[in-house]
Structures are given as structure tokens and as C-alpha cells.
């Protein structure tokens, strides 16, 4: 989803304080039974929260079900954010609380020039680029190119735009290297080579990709370079391990051909011996 600045600006008047929201629930004369049902008051199950809120907030649910949070939640990752994690339950609030789960991202963001600028322009921090309910899966395409979010504020050719392209190339380079390593290791695994150690190391190396994506939020090349360099080094080593496994496979096949030839020759020799023996007798 491309969350445009214009859309955000249109949405801004709707944002209010926690006090406003509590008042709005009270104003709407919402009672306990409206959420918890009549009869025996039961705790609302985590899996039922979205359904409960959607009784009044159908539009927000529609946006939420298109988000990465819902994509994970609906696949059984119940730790993924749902309504209550951002808005609270009885102490209903509207203030964005992304940092309660994404603390490192917030730390990086606070180091960036965006932090002060967004505050000055009242762009709402994280939601300024990622939106709120409809938070899409992130990718390096958000940094440069047709789907760039940076381009909403920074025209092409400007310093920030170039910085976006540079960060994108670093992330993509790391992704491609890790992808190549994963492919060669998978090839080795499917032909029966024992590469489980390398596959564990690949999982660890994939973490550098996550770290690099987090570091992008500081908009400082040196922050991104640390995990990228580490990841590229690991990916290179893993690719070599994959190559070695495939070379070993080839060696084994060659060994098999030699062994089979020797066995075949022996069988032929035995057969000739039997024939000679039986012809004599």
C-alpha cells in the first residue's frame, strides 16, 4: 500500500487524545454488555477481539485485515498486533504505540532527521510512512523507484532521494546474496548432502537482513553498513559451503562410476570363470 502524505493529512483531524476516545465511547453510551455480552460476563478471547471491535468499527477492520499484522495473526501468530495492542482495552486510546513492540525501530527513527521534521509537521511518527490500520508488508521498494514513499516528500535527484536509492541498493544486495546462498544450500540438501549446519548459519545470517532493515530508519549509512557487511560476509561463506557440498556430490558420483565399473568387471570375470569351469566339466 502506498500511504500518501495527503491521505495522512486528511486523516489528522480525526486523531485525538486518549481522553477524547474514552469520552467518545462514553458519548456513544457504550456499556459493558455491548462488548462482553449479557449473561455471564466473559473475558473476550484474543482471537475474538477484532470481531468485537468491528461491530462499531467495520471500516477500520477492513483496513486492518489488509495489514501485515492481520496476515500474521490470521496464520496463528497470536503475538501479532490486534486492536487492543495499540488502542488498549478499557483505557481506550488513539495515540500510536508502535514502539511498544518495535522499540529498536523507534530508537533508530529517533536518531534520524525524520524524527524532528515529522514532529514539526505533525506527521505522526511511524504512521507517517507506514499508515496505521492498513500497515503493509515492508520492502526495499519503499525507499526508491516507482513505489517509493520517500518520493512523496523528496523529489527525484535530491539528496534524500539519492540516500533512499543507496540504502535500497544495500538492502537489495544483501537480500540477493542471502537468496543465492539459500538456493545453493537447498540444491545441496535436495541431492542428499548434509548441510544442516549451514542452514542453521543461514537462519542466523538472515537476521542481519532484519537488522539492516531496522537500521534504515536511522537514515545513516554507517548504521546500515554494519549488518549489511556482516550479512554479506556470512552469505559469501555459506555460498562457498553450498558449492563445496555440490562439488562433493560430483566427487561421490565419480567415485560411484569407478566403483561400479570395478564391480561390473569382477562380475564379468566371475561369469567367464564359471563358463570355463562348466565347459571343462
Amino acid at each position: 500500500m502506498k500511504f500518501t502524505l495527503a491521505a495522512l493529512l486528511l486523516a489528522l483531524p480525526a486523531l485525538g487524545t486518549a481522553e477524547d476516545v474514552r469520552v467518545s465511547h462514553a458519548k456513544a453510551e457504550l456499556k459493558c454488555v455491548d462488548c462482553h455480552g449479557s449473561g455471564a460476563i466473559a473475558k473476550i478471547k484474543r482471537s475474538e477481539v477484532t470481531k468485537t471491535c468491528a461491530r462499531c468499527h467495520a471500516e477500520q477492520l477492513k483496513q486492518y485485515t489488509a495489514s501485515v499484522h492481520w496476515a500474521k495473526f490470521s496464520k496463528g501468530e497470536t503475538a501479532a498486533a490486534t486492536c487492543l495492542d495499540c488502542h488498549g482495552s478499557h483505557e481506550t486510546r488513539k495515540a500510536p504505540t508502535c514502539e511498544s513492540c518495535h522499540a529498536t525501530l523507534k530508537e533508530m527513527y529517533d536518531k534520524s532527521p525524520h524524527a524532528k521534521a515529522f514532529e514539526r509537521m505533525q506527521l505522526g511518527g511511524c504512521v507517517g510512512c507506514h499508515g496505521n490500520h492498513e500497515i503493509a508488508v515492508t520492502s526495499s521498494a519503499m525507499l526508491a523507484g516507482d513505489k517509493s514513499l520517500c518520493a512523496d516528500c523528496h523529489p527525484a535527484g535530491t539528496g534524500p532521494s539519492k540516500m533512499g536509492a543507496l540504502l535500497q541498493s544495500k538492502l537489495d544486495g544483501l537480500h540477493t546474496s542471502l537468496q543465492k546462498s539459500a538456493e545453493i544450500l537447498e540444491r545441496a540438501r535436495t541431492v542428499g548432502m548434509e548441510v544442516s549446519d549451514s542452514l542453521v548459519k543461514l537462519q542466523e545470517a538472515n537476521q542481519t537482513q532484519v537488522q539492516a532493515r531496522v537500521a534504515v530508519h536511522s537514515l545513516r549509512v554507517e548504521d546500515v553498513d554494519v549488518p549489511v557487511k556482516e550479512g554479506l560476509q556470512a552469505a559469501g561463506q555459506l555460498y562457498k559451503e553450498g558449492e563445496a557440498a555440490l562439488r562433493e556430490r560430483d566427487k561421490r558420483r565419480m567415485g560411484l562410476v569407478v566403483s561400479l565399473s570395478a564391480i561390473l568387471l569382477t562380475i564379468v570375470g566371475l561369469w567367464l570363470r564359471i563358463r570355463k569351469l562348466e565347459n571343462h566339466s
Binding site: G192, R253, L256, I263, I267, L270, I274, E278
Partner: peptide, 27 residues
């Protein structure tokens, strides 16, 4: 001995070949 034993030995070598193919191609 030796007629059947030599034939049996051929069968053993054949088994060894099958085993080699399985072990090398499908570890």
C-alpha cells in the same frame, strides 16, 4: 563349490553395486 559359490559371489557383487548406487545417489 565352486559352481554355486561363484554364482553366489556374483549375486553379492550385484548387491554391492545396488547398495553403492543407493548410498551415493540417495544418501
Amino acid at each position: 563349490f565352486p559352481n554355486f559359490a561363484l554364482r553366489e559371489m556374483m549375486a553379492w557383487y550385484g548387491t554391492l553395486a545396488v547398495l553403492g548406487v543407493l548410498a551415493a545417489l540417495y544418501p
